[in-house]
Amino acid sequence: MLQVYLSLLDTQAEKDKFIQVYEAYRDLMFYIARRYLAGDADREIAVDGALHALLGVLESLDDPFSTKTKNLVALITRNKCIDVLRRRGGASEESWEESGGEETLPAKAPDAAADDLSLAIRSLRETSQDVLILRYYYGYSAAEIGKILGIGRDAARKRLERAKKELKEMLEGDV
């Protein structure tokens, strides 16, 4: 039994997963951080936060080099950057949630080829897009999303509900 433990521990792929992810996406994470944050220190705080969050979901990443993993790394990093901006602005998580979260970058105009649902999602603000993506593309629960975003389960649930409401309004042409 103990030999099983030792042999599992020696699995190089498992040992290296964190380093693989870090080395594969370090440049991407800092690139995203540069788009949001001005100072090197803030960028490193955001990337550090992203790495901590990734550590919590590393087990769920089947392939560190897949597009799906790359998208997740980008999403998490973007959220950690927004988090740093929010803290710098002195807003509490609660007030941030109540205000719906300020946008730091405008949502990009979706291309015409995308279907209605995808278009609508991409027209939402980033924080709303991200919880929907984490929920429906990655299949994470509200608790897991809360952990990834560092906002707690209830806040994640609220954000998810709000995103779905916004999406519905978007699709029904109320926005």
Partner: peptide
């Protein structure tokens, strides 16, 4: 349907990345 649309949205968010990223 939602998963598919979210996948497209996730991919689109990286569509404007340069081919070569500056080294961190």
């Amino acid at each position: 349907d939602l998963a598919q649309a979210c996948e497209a949205a996730a991919s689109a968010s990286l569509s404007d990345l340069p081919d070569i990223l500056p080294a961190a």
